[in-house]
Nucleic acid binder design. Structure first.
Lengths: 293, 293
DNA sequence: TGGGGTCATAAGCTGCGCTTGTGCCCCTGA
DNA sequence: TCAGGGGCACAAGCGCAGCTTATGACCCCA
């Protein structure tokens, strides 16, 4: 497996314009940075940085590698932020409960942003289904919750932090893939889909919007597995736009319009009614909200 | 920086259902896998795998971590595949020249797929602008090229491998963000944008489609920098849908419809006319094409 | 002409993660 | 009922990657 360390320092060097300053940011010596970059260049047989006595800039090769590296490093940081938040022994300043879609796709990046803006804030995350999240917040087991759909309880204050849209996706070769005029609710109801197991918030929302569904063609435990099955041509599926954005852009999956049904959904932060948000909770909600408005 | 190694083996264990088989896949001993997973669990204070004498399955915590990890591991593999392809000393079986959008966003994943399907195929990649790509292929300096837009030369055969669409994006707080009826060509022409430097294929395509543009508000060298500037509210920008898919999904950027202008674009593979595609080149084009139809 | 900035190189040490070898547990099948 | 095989865990020992420290070379500017 690739060691992202050298790429991380490459990005710092590119951003800061000097190996010495990058070394400082990473808490190591300038010699260590120099050696890391050199060995990376050695492995590639290509120079990535143009050194000068006044500093350092990316070569064209370096710029391409840096662009690739940024994606990987960002993903690794999101993983790390997520993983840190489920570390159990910590005395967390902020306890968050989140439904799966939020926990899987949005929270890690929010946590990365929170970590850079407020490094002193430690977060503990538990991933539950939407009703459990509300229960945890009401019971005081969590300071802040994130759920899909309209807020569930009158005892909770809520604020919309993001939106998504349930999206009907098929494999590129599927008959529906080129269907411009879309699929209506009746047709959708009658079609066996690849679905998550019962109890999933997404599945409940879909049934609420279009009515009772046909028996699933296949039930799978993870979103990733569902995407795989759809791409392999097993059956269509309905998933959050957040989940399939990458695949749609690249063309691995194709979105099919669904007509006559409102599949827009709000992702909301919830907390006990009457108690104004303060401290780390307010910071996190603010940061999540700022990402969209 | 996070070490992705343990996460990579976690994914293998989850997929294969046993530490021993995961060890075999990674070419290490079962003891090494066991130790890696244990230390990962130790660092988290949470068990990720449910061991039994018949094998091993993910716990709920494990499933969440695995979903996060998959994103990071995939990104790292794409980085590695890309980086391997610019390694200079290799005797490549296939020399590819690609324009920036393709090289940056699509090729790494194609290379990952190619590596798993045909591990013996080594690829060398050079990233050029569209006219240079065509020239390289014609001159025999590259076996295969990838360019944006309609094929440039009559001496080249071409095949569409993907599509994208130039997308007008603004910061979520921008006045245009909530503008449902869109922006027309005239308005767009009159607005200073954040743009890449002259010579970029995307910029040329845009000028061809809407006409001469206003002087840019800011010229930047990398797509990433442009996205950052747009999100910071400097000015709107027009970028490939491939480039902004992630940001649009998460809400960091907002797409504004452009009316009366066709911004759809084809990304095509090109090779010398008359010489039918064969061997590794055919495999790569086929694989790239299969991802969308 | 010296001082502050840049990066490179060399020598030495430390610690992480591997392998090998073993033990224990459970299921299965003769 | 017991042997065998497949599952995972633990302990001891080793090798190497990457760090630090120390120094040198180079360039620019005051």
């Amino acid at each position: 497996m690739v060691d992202l360390g050298p790429y991380d320092v490459l990005l710092s060097v590119a951003e800061l314009g000097s190996m010495g300053r990058a070394a400082e940011r990473h808490g190591v010596t300038q010699a260590a940075v120099s050696a890391r970059i050199r060995s990376l260049e050695g492995a590639l047989g290509v120079t990535l940085l143009e050194r000068s006595p006044r500093g350092t800039r990316l070569t064209p090769h370096g710029a391409l590698v840096a662009d690739w590296a940024r994606v990987a490093v960002d993903a690794a940081e999101a993983l790390d932020a997520g993983v840190t938040s489920i570390r159990s022994e910590q005395a967390a300043r902020l306890r968050v409960a989140a439904s799966l879609t939020v926990a899987e796709y949005l929270l890690p990046r929010w946590l990365v942003a929170l970590r850079t803006e407020h490094p002193e804030t430690s977060v503990s995350l538990s991933s539950r289904n939407s009703t459990d999240v509300a229960a945890d917040v009401l019971a005081g087991a969590a300071d802040l919750g994130f759920v899909e759909g309209p807020a569930v309880s009158d005892d909770l204050d809520a604020q919309v932090v993001a939106r998504d849209r349930l999206t009907l996706v098929v494999a590129p070769g599927h008959a529906w893939a080129s269907r411009r005029r879309g699929i209506d609710a009746e047709r959708l109801r009658a079609t066996p889909l690849v679905a998550r197991e019962h109890g999933s918030g997404t599945r409940a929302f879909l049934e609420h919007a279009v009515g009772a569904l046909a028996r699933p063609a296949l039930e799978l435990a993870s979103t990733t597995a569902i995407k795989g099955a759809v791409a392999a041509g097993v059956a269509p599926a309905v998933l959050s736009s957040l989940v399939v954005a990458g695949e749609l852009a690249v063309g691995t999956l194709v979105a099919v319009p669904v007509v006559g049904v409102d599949l827009d959904r709000r992702l909301v932060a919830v907390w006990p009614r009457g108690r104004p948000l303060a401290g780390p909770a307010a910071e996190l909600v603010g940061l999540a909200t700022r990402r969209r408005e």
